[in-house]
Design a protein around this nucleic acid. Structure first.
Length: 968
RNA sequence: GCGGAAGUAGUCGAGUUGGCCAAAGACGCAGGACUUAAGAUCCUGUCCUUAGCGGUUCAUGGGUUCGAAUCCCUUCUUCCGCACCA
């Protein structure tokens, strides 16, 4: 059936908008429900994966609407940071990939000129997100309340928030080391490489700079190490003879380091100045005094030293560093030491590895052991050797760190475990002035702008004090009392909250965002301005409709409407906002808040959600704390990666909606898996959902169109019982926000029931309309457009989007009616099962229902089970007391035993239904149906019947609920 | 390393307060119906065995229990977070 989904969807979306169903207005007489999804950062076009979470939010909101709630579902975007700037820059310089990406996603070429300007990028994507994604998917979001973190009124809110944090002593200043680009300022180094063109996997490492005094030259050779605990094993020093080193003056001392390192030092230490250069070859052969060890060691040449890492000078600990062991062996064998550098053989011979750490499973020299074990000496391919050496280094470091113990040669530190010694020894050397701490990236990192990123010290950095004990304790307590899904998040968040310390909250340099209210050289960074914002949706409406202006939104305004502090006339006087309006806004804020659900992807679990909770706890009173957080997992690409926005693998959203329809995609998201697992994007699967929906649509269409009507019978009771039961299931699933279970009920179970009803010849018009009323209404949250279409077709009143889901009618629920059909299905299934085993054609079957005495026992057993007195001896005793039963002796006691055991494990309602059922009458009435289903003649008989036709003596095995079957 | 999660049939995935679980649903596959236009629809089947019985399963090996996919421990494997990144 060809159906123009786009047109149909647009029609209903317009109807919703015309009826203003999406607009959230305070209604003091009605319970409210406020749900948001964590607004997306503006980073370009979104992909089909993002819509997963957003769709959940809309579906939950719609469900709440149809169960009596006044719902607010606002949306917004997050533009803070440098994403938009870097995107605009790339567009401005006509970066080919970027332009191609934009065009492919439907950006008109004419827009490209304008988009070189960051704020234009923001404006453009604000429209794209709202129109091409959220409206297109049929979200009943209150677009009037849309806000963006770069709006001037939003900035006022953030300023107020920071004023509050400061008042509560939660803002502090201290020095801070951050990766920074010389022109763009601090950048984020992470695998997504949002800010970078290279090096997203780099880690910041804390090196210990060791100072080696060189008496003859009166300067320090400065080596960087990650293993300060190995200083007692130093035997020599490595420098590159083929490069020039820089001499810098640091607080009056002269340090020799690689030129790259000199630049880095300037970023992290004060008073670093250039003081000349020295050729590397001039360093070879010098003697220098090793820190802590206090021994003179010689400088040897080495070609493995990389000037870009650390200081470009390396201290040698052959016992525990495979590279050092290897290099030392080579160096000693190198005649240049004597011939070229004039080092005396005595000095060379004196360089012997010192055993300093004992590790279980290793000998005196772990570095040598690991190389022997890995047979590195036998390797020929240089690339393989390099890889193996890297591996060897890691292994020996790891084992040493966890199992190693310092040996006696290690002075005061002897006997300590390596991980203890590491910190203590570093601290000791720092205290004695022999070492300083230096931070460096472990690989090259290049900013989007093309410059190399280094670690830089930033003084007077502002932090939010998330480590505050009281705040942490209060937040943890609240997190125990609220709704958090999935359960492991509920547990983990406690630990995450504990682990939070200070967090840098402002940035220098070119960033989009709100200026820091206490010093406008800083810009508030992206996470810190997106923690309290849901409450702002209750206010944004007034700014968006120009009822208030940004510059009227002074701190006292927020104090009044949010915290109910201050005097309305004074606030009105100072802001120029009428008192009535102030009170109206205040009433709105307190009607809608607290937030009921904040829904976001799993990436928010350790960052956004905890700070969201902490900021609420820090600033708002008890009755405004968030009530729930729902975390959704991702839609991933084929290779299990998160579908990457930048890599452009996924289909653009508008194309996907056009292909499958918004409802099919919504159903796909809701039903394909639990919220809490990743799913792989699979177009075929989406197509399947589309087909399933179409099948449901045509089923409903046919039911509505059918002219037939028939009197109601047992199958009608069955259908209404089932559908009313489903209503309860839907409600209990949604109680837990379990959309998957809910959609399973609505789109699978109910569809199957409807089919069975038709198959059983159900044709009662009134029953059908009652069932459709329930069914179509149940489809509204997830597939609203199709529900609307069917609702209209069935002639129901108004829009289903504003209809209320019927309550389950307990009078319609009948265990007996439901049991009958299950019974029938299992009889048919048994007949088929047995027929499969029989050779030759089957023409006839006889179904024997259980004899009266078995039914009598069963009834007794059920009655006893209801009273809770059922047991094998009790039941047997009771049976034997009956003279009629006693005649059957052993058969009775066996059956009583079996019945008692069975009943203990079956559902009592089912058992009762069976006990009340007249099986024989039921089977007689269903005879024709069974016959039609199986294609064979059916006879029904009771095992007690006189002149029973029972050639195979089957009737004796019949039990209640399980007729015996004979085939011929 | 630290912390967390998870391993279920050909596949994706339910089921994890222990019992009604040979284990939902979907997909795939096989047979049939309808038809020969459809990535259509509808039935039936899909661990082994078998007149519906029974047997053996839920990464692995052990344990607790009258009873375990579900609880405890071994081992193996996979995934995720670890901070200034939304």
């Amino acid at each position: 059936m060809a159906r123009d989904y786009a047109e149909m969807e647009a029609k209903w979306q317009k109807a919703w908008a015309d009826n203003r169903l999406n607009e959230a207005e305070r209604d003091d007489g009605k319970p409210k429900f406020m749900i948001i999804f964590a607004y997306p950062g503006i980073t370009g076009f979104l992909h089909v994966g993002h819509l997963r979470g957003y769709t959940y939010a809309d579906a939950l909101g719609r469900y709440k609407r149809m169960t009596g709630y006044n719902v607010m579902f606002p949306v917004g975007t997050h533009g803070t940071g440098n994403g938009c700037i870097s995107l605009a820059n790339k567009i401005a310089r006509k970066d080919e990939k970027t332009v191609d990406y934009l065009v492919r996603n439907g950006c008109p070429e004419s827009m490209l000129e304008e988009l070189g300007e960051p704020m234009k990028v923001v404006e453009y994507f604000n429209e794209v997100y709202q129109n091409d994604y959220w409206r297109r998917f049929g979200f009943l979001a209150d677009f009037r309340r849309f806000t963006c973190t770069l709006y001037p009124d939003y900035a006022k809110f953030i300023e107020w928030q920071f004023t509050k944090l400061k008042e509560k002593d939660l803002l502090i200043q201290k020095p801070y080391y951050a990766p920074a680009c010389p022109s763009c300022g601090p950048v984020a180094v992470d695998p997504s490489e949002t800010d970078l063109s290279k090096g997203g996997l780099a880690e910041t490492q804390e090196y210990t700079l060791l100072k080696f005094w060189c008496e003859s030259k009166q300067f320090f050779l400065v080596a960087a190490t990650l293993r300060p605990e190995t200083v007692y094993g130093q035997v020599c020093f490595w420098a590159r003879p083929d490069m020039d080193y820089a001499i810098v003056s640091v607080n009056g001392e002269k340090w020799v380091v690689a030129p790259e390192a000199a630049e880095k030092l300037k970023l992290q230490f004060d008073g670093v100045e250039d003081a000349g250069t020295i050729p590397g070859k001039d360093l070879i052969g010098l003697m220098c005094r090793a820190p802590m060890l206090h021994k003179e060691i010689p400088v040897f040449p080495a070609d493995f030293v990389d000037p870009a890492i650390g200081t470009g000078l390396v201290t040698s600990v052959p016992s525990d560093a495979p590279a050092d062991w290897d290099s030392l062996e080579k160096a000693k064998a190198n005649p240049d030491l004597v011939d070229v550098y004039g080092i005396s053989q005595d000095v060379i011979d004196a360089v012997q590895p010192i055993s300093i750490i004992s590790i279980k499973g290793y000998g005196d020299f772990p570095a040598k052991d690991i190389m022997d074990r890995m047979k590195i000496a036998d390797m020929k391919d240089p690339a393989k050797v390099k890889e193996a050496m890297e591996e060897a280094k890691k292994t020996v470091y790891k084992d040493g760190y966890h199992m190693g113990r310092m040996k006696d040669v290690c002075g005061d530190f002897a006997g300590l475990s390596v991980n203890e010694a590491k910190d203590k020894m570093r601290q000791a050397m720092v205290d004695s002035g022999e070492a300083v701490i230096f931070r460096d990236l472990n690989m090259e990192v290049v900013c989007r702008c093309g410059k190399t990123v280094h670690i830089r010290r930033i003084d007077d950095q502002w932090f939010i004090k998330y480590g505050d004990e009281q705040l942490t304790a209060d937040t943890k307590k609240h997190a125990r009392d609220m709704f958090l899904q999935p359960p492991e998040f509920y547990d983990n968040v406690q630990g995450t909250l504990d682990w939070y310390r200070e967090r840098a909250c402002v940035r220098l340099g070119k960033w989009l965002g709100t200026k820091f209210p206490f010093d406008d050289k800083w810009t508030i960074e992206a996470i810190s301005d997106s923690t309290l914002y849901p409450i702002y949706y209750t206010i944004s409406l007034y700014a968006n409709t120009k009822q208030i202006e940004a510059d009227q939104m002074k701190p006292e305004f927020f104090d009044y409407v949010i915290l109910e502090e201050g005097n309305v006339d004074e606030v009105s006087a100072s802001t120029g906002i009428p008192a009535e309006l102030l009170d109206k806004i205040k009433a709105d804020v307190h009607y809608w808040y607290p937030l009921d659900i904040n829904l976001g992807g799993k990436e928010h679990m350790t960052v956004h959600f905890p700070v969201f909770l902490m900021n609420h706890r820090a600033i708002l009173p008890d009755d405004m704390q968030p009530k729930g957080i729902l975390v959704n997992w991702y839609v991933t690409g084929k290779n299990k990666d998160k579908i990457s926005k930048s890599k452009g693998g996924a289909q653009p959203i508008p194309g996907a909606v056009a292909d499958y329809g918004a409802d099919a995609m919504r159903l796909y998201y809701a039903n394909v898996a639990s919220m809490f697992v990743d799913v792989e994007w699979d177009e075929d699967l989406v197509f399947n959902y589309k087909q399933r929906l179409e099948r449901i649509v045509s089923t409903v269409e046919e039911l509505i169109a059918s002219e037939e009507d028939a009197p109601a019978g047992s199958i009608d009771m069955w259908l209404l019982s089932r559908f009313n039961t489903h209503l309860d299931e839907i409600r209990s699933s949604m109680e837990k926000y379990d959309l998957r279970q809910m959609t399973l009920t609505v789109y699978f179970d109910m569809a199957a029931d409807m089919r069975w009803y038709e198959r059983r010849g159900g044709k009662n018009k009134a029953t059908i309309m009652k069932a459709l009323r329930i069914w179509i209404n149940s489809m509204m949250p997830v597939t609203p457009h199709i529900a609307e279409e069917l609702w209209a077709m069935a002639g129901f009143e108004g829009l289903v989007a504003s209809a209320q889901l019927p309550e389950c009618d307990p009078a319609a629920v009948s265990a007996v009616a439901e049991y009958g059909e299950n019974y029938l299905q299992s009889v048919i299934s048994d007949v088929n099962e047995i027929r499969k085993m029989v050779d030759g054609d089957v023409t006839k079957t006889v179904l024997y229902t259980a004899p009266g005495w078995k039914n009598a026992i069963y009834k007794d057993a059920v009655a006893m089970a209801e009273e809770g007195t059922l047991g094998i001896p009790e039941l047997t005793k009771k049976c034997m007391a009956d003279p009629e039963l006693k005649k059957n002796g052993k058969a009775v006691s066996d059956f009583a035993k079996k019945t008692a055991i069975d009943l203990k494990r079956t559902n009592l309602a089912t058992a009762k239904a069976l006990a009340e059922m007249d099986e024989k009458a039921f089977l007689v009435s269903a005879k024709d149906f069974i016959s039609a289903e199986t294609g064979i003649t059916v006879d029904v008989a009771g095992a007690d019947d006189e002149n029973l036709y029972d050639p195979a003596n089957k009737a004796r095995v019949a039990t209640p609920g399980r007729p015996a079957i004979y085939l011929e």
